[in-house]
Write a protein that binds this DNA or RNA. Structure first.
Lengths: 366, 366
DNA sequence: ATGAAAGCGCTAACAG
DNA sequence: CTGTTAGCGCTTTCAT
């Protein structure tokens, strides 16, 4: 009864101890503190473990005991496929992954499908066994952000200008960066400007509704501060040049798909045919918009100025005039803030630098 | 003593129960089986929870009890940054993430840095609280693969032609796919062929050693079957055309970086200047090789035929002659195999189709 | 509809 | 170097 070679029941640390007639501590030590027992006792333990098919201490039980999960959770409010289609977001994830790898921590991509109810028991934010969370670019009122806050674990928010109490924050100065870019565009002489932005609300419109002209109300209701700050930067620049920001044609793209920028560009030009510059809050929008313009035979920058934001490789290689931001570094910093938090335990605000890239897609208006 | 609003100690299910003078079962039910108690008792529970800052059942403790972690682990033997730089690998991850999202499961990227010792207690493969693992393109003798096998959890291996006992498998027919491509190249008249491959061994050479000509011994010792199968496909085609596969110049690229293909191409052409076709086991290698050739003023396909493997978007848009494989679908399948395993519990082998893409980078030799 | 009791598998003092 | 003693926080029969 004591040494059946194929126990029907999964071997545990306790069963190993019983088999070897030693205490559980000894087994535990064999795995966790090899120096605490003689080499050959350890050998015997490992050999018996192998024979019994014992894979070592159960990670979950250990987590429960030590209160460490060995992983951090990443919450992205977009469908994960978005995170994998925008190089800027992807680079952020890569940076985060890199810092996790360095720290020997896992990175748990938390499933946050649009349809998943927030409060039900299967909520994966609540179900995630992690030591902390990184929340990427959520709206202030995002229900998942609220849930994460409830969990009372360390949190780092990224691209979330508004303060989240107790959370550290990694971001850039979106408003100033965009303002510099807009200053440049306005300085070139543009007066009628179209502004293409990502979604401003938590609801998800699709299909025909995916793009829409943004009313002042919707803009002021927006809870996506990254977008509104960038828009604000453009408004600042216009106001600074004596232009009325209300003349800006803002189009929102709710779906984030490769062709979203094209649809938004079309709507913008349709809404105001006198537009001479299309500014976009993301390079992916700008690139798609340029594809649209090319298909329409509208030359950039001859007939239309186009600008982006992010500085993704494709944008840079295509000469897009844009703002370059250190997405990878954002990810690394976010991870580091979680893995080695500041001594004093106080939240940190880490504002990373950006750089205006004067590419080849901006010129004077016709 | 009973209703202090800010307990120094984290609230638990038990403390809530004590506070409300109900049993733990009731609290548990309030979260997990709302229909098992009256609506207003449930309200009271939730209200008290909020007051005490109780975020709901601890995920780790629940995992221990229920033996479910709500997440699957992904083990990639490359540094994670590789997974984020090769679109083919990335697409696979995206597909896997998508199926996890659908299933409401988390996806844990397991840290498998090169320097991390396999057997130490901090081994993140052992530390991961997951319900199953996906192992992506590891060598047969990869130590992490062995570790994962020990864990006695469901496993799906991807791009791993050799059988792993008890594991399901998602793959393509690398050998046949590459053979078709090589048949095409040989059919064009090429006799001196260079073959650029990813690393064939577990050790990691860097810097000057990163690229190297592959000896027959090293080839036969290779444990990366995806690579060796693709190489085998080329050999098959040559043999089929009456050519001696031993004349193939095989260069291995151990680092996987954007410029790796260039270095490998240079070495191949240096080793055998009569090469008229460079076949690559990955599109990223081929693209980098093409960049190198362009820089050298060598025209493709006029002076050099180049082929790839994977069918990543950039390759397709650049007209690369290659084999297209459904990377995203591989990820989805792998996930599904874990989330809803076949009834009979038997391992599944899922061979996905590939397609020969006759692009614009292959032509007759000069 | 609610409660009592029995662990899930492990680690961490502390004592020998 | 090894064993004893207590839990970590939760779910789940089985009663009531």
């Amino acid at each position: 009864m004591s040494r059946s070679p194929a126990p029907r029941r999964r071997a545990t640390l306790a069963s190993l101890a019983a088999e070897l007639k030693v205490s559980r501590t000894t087994i535990s030590n064999a795995y966790n503190r090899p120096d605490q027992l003689s080499a050959d006792l350890r050998e015997r333990v490992l050999a018996t473990a192998k024979r019994l098919g014992y894979a070592g201490p159960d990670p979950v039980a250990r987590s429960l005991r030590t209160r460490k999960a060995g992983a951090v959770g990443l919450v992205i409010t977009e469908p994960l496929t978005y995170a994998f289609s925008d190089p800027a977001a992807l680079n952020f994830v890569a940076g985060l992954a890199e810092s996790c790898e360095e720290a020997g921590q896992g990175l748990l991509l938390v499933a946050v499908g649009p349809d998943r109810s927030v409060s039900d028991g299967t909520n994966s934010v609540l179900a995630a066994g992690v030591d902390g969370f990184v929340v990427y670019s959520a709206a202030d009122d995002d229900p998942y952000l609220q849930t994460v806050l409830q969990r009372h674990v360390p949190i780092v928010v990224v691209d979330q200008p508004v303060d989240v109490p107790g959370a550290s924050r990694v971001c850039i100065d979106d408003r100033t960066a965009m303002r510099e870019l807009a200053d440049y565009v306005v300085g070139l002489g543009h007066r009628e400007i179209g502004l293409l932005t990502m979604r401003l609300g938590n609801e998800r419109r699709v299909g025909d509704q995916a793009s829409g002209v943004v009313s002042p109300d919707r803009l002021s209701d927006s809870r996506f501060h990254v977008q509104t700050e960038r828009i604000g930067g453009v408004c600042d620049a216009m106001a600074g040049a004596g232009l009325d920001p209300a003349t800006l044609t803002i189009v929102e793209s709710c779906e984030h798909r490769p062709a979203s920028g094209a649809a938004a560009a079309e709507l913008a030009l349709q809404t105001n045919p006198r537009i001479t510059a299309l500014m976009c809050t993301a390079d992916v929008l700008a690139i798609s918009a340029m594809d649209y313009l090319r298909a329409k035979g509208i030359y950039v920058p001859g007939q239309m100025t186009v600008t982006g934001f992010d500085g993704i490789p494709e944008a840079l290689s295509r000469g897009l005039t844009t703002v370059s931001q250190p997405s990878l570094e954002k990810g690394k910093r976010a991870g580091r803030l979680l893995h080695s938090p500041p001594r004093d335990g106080l939240p940190v605000i880490d504002v990373l630098p950006t750089e205006l890239v004067r590419g080849r897609t901006a010129g004077p208006p016709v």
